[in-house]
Amino acid sequence: MTEMLASKLAEPKQVLTGVSPAADHSEGMSYLERLPRRLITLYLPLFIILAVLLFPFYWMALTAIKPDEQLLDLERFNPFWTWNPTFKHIYKLLFETDYPRWLWNTMLVAICATVLSIIASVLAAYAIVRLRYKGAQWVGGAIFLAYLVPPSILFIPLASVVFQYGLFDTPFALILTYPTILIPFSTWLLMGYFKTIPFELEECALIDGASRWQILTKIVLPLAIPGLISSFIFCFTLCWNEFIYALTFLSSTQNKTVPVAIVNEFVDGDIYRWGSLMAGALVGSLPLVILYAFFVEHYVSAMTGAVKE
C-alpha cells in the first residue's frame, strides 16, 4: 500500500518546480500549441482561479489599513484602493487590546504541543519502521486510523476528560490534547522518511557496537532532518489553525488563542469593528505566511506525505 502510492507521488521539489526526470522532456510537445490558444485555455482560467483564491487576503489587508470613514462609504471612495492608509487599527490591536497576549498563548501552545508530538512521533515511527516488533504493521495501521478521527467528534468527551484531570482553562488542556491530532500525522510522515534511510547504515553501526539510541540520534535523525522540518512546521500550522478544542477548553479571556479570541472578543455591536477585526486576522496569519514563504518545499512534502498511504 505504502509503496504503491509513494511511487505515484512526485517529490516535493518536483511538485513546485516541475523539474523531474519524468517531466524533463515534457516541454517537447507544448510548442505545437499557439499562443492565442494557450491564452484562452490556460492563462485565463488560471488567472481567474488565482484571483478568487487571493482576493480575500487582499480585501483583508486593505480593510486593515483603510481609515474608518472610507470603510463604510462605498460611494464616495473607490472601495478597491485607498490613498491614505492608516496603521490605526493595527496600533489599536497591539497596544489597546490583549492581542499580544493571545499571540503569545497561541505561540506557546503551538510550540509545546509540536515539540512533544515530534519527540513521541520520532520514537514511535522509528520503532514501527526499524525495530519491526510483533504487530508493528497493525500499530502503523491503527495510527493511520487515528489520523482520520476528527476533533469534532472528540471534543465533548475530551471536555469532560480535561475537566477530570483538572486542566480546564489552562494552556495544558491544549498542549496535551493537540498531540492527538499531531502525533498520527507526524508519525505517518516520519515513517515514510525513515523507510528511505538505507538499513545498511544502521547495520554497520550495530556491528560497531552502537546502541539503538545512538543509532537513532547520530545516524537516523541527522539524515531525516528534512522530514523533521516538514513535520514541525506542518504541526505548528495545524496547532495555529485548531479552533474547536481551544473554544471548548478555555474560558477566561487572557488564556485564549488568537482564532478563538478574535471570534469571541472582537465581535461587539460596534459598526467600525471591521478595521480591527481584519487587522487581527491579518496579524494572526502573517507568522504562518512568513514561515510558509521560507519552507514552501517542506510544506508541500508534508502535504503529499500526509496522503501517501
Partner: peptide, 14 residues
C-alpha cells in the same frame, strides 16, 4: 497553497 496555510478562522472572518 496560501489559502490552505492561513488559519481557517481568520480567512473565514475575511
Amino acid at each position: 497553497l496560501i489559502p490552505f496555510i492561513v488559519p481557517t478562522v481568520l480567512s473565514a472572518i475575511a
